[in-house]
Amino acid sequence: MTDQAQTSTSLLSRRHLLMFVSVAAGGFATAIVGLPLIGFLIAPLFRRQPGVWRDVGPLSKFPVGETSKVTLEDSSSIPWGGADSLTAAWLRRVDEQTFQAFAVDCTHLGCPVRWEASAELFMCPCHGGVYYKNGEVAAGPPPHALEQFPVRILNNTVQVEWRKLPDVAENCLHSKEADA
């Protein structure tokens, strides 16, 4: 009687041990493959692209009062990125020394706005957003003005800083504060 009970408990604990070993071994194998994989997969979420100044042309190329398209290359170095590494901006020469470089992304949903020179308006092809030449919202759904890249003049060359566009949410707050 006692012998039998002992056998069954020892059997049970032996089974428990085997189950534990199976699950633990499986868990270990999964973890040593899984954790690095997860790290590899989510790494792009934490990939920061620092700002970088890009030459866009000599000062003389941009007449005062006019707005023209310039192309900026981003700071990432994905060798097969091709044209995806390029960003366009609308560069407006306000006066001799002042420039504004607008991101082409409509602040509504990011469609590319066009500069309609004769009407002096930026117009979005998607949902009817319109901006004045200074980037302020003229009509339609955009929540705030066109975002801007920093511009500087260095040895008669105009430079625009490619950088990550500010978060829309932050900008909304700013424009609301400005309105108030």
Partner: peptide, 8 residues
């Protein structure tokens, strides 16, 4: 897949 549209 990053801060901005890219090759990735």
């Amino acid at each position: 897949a990053g801060d901005r549209l890219s090759g990735l």
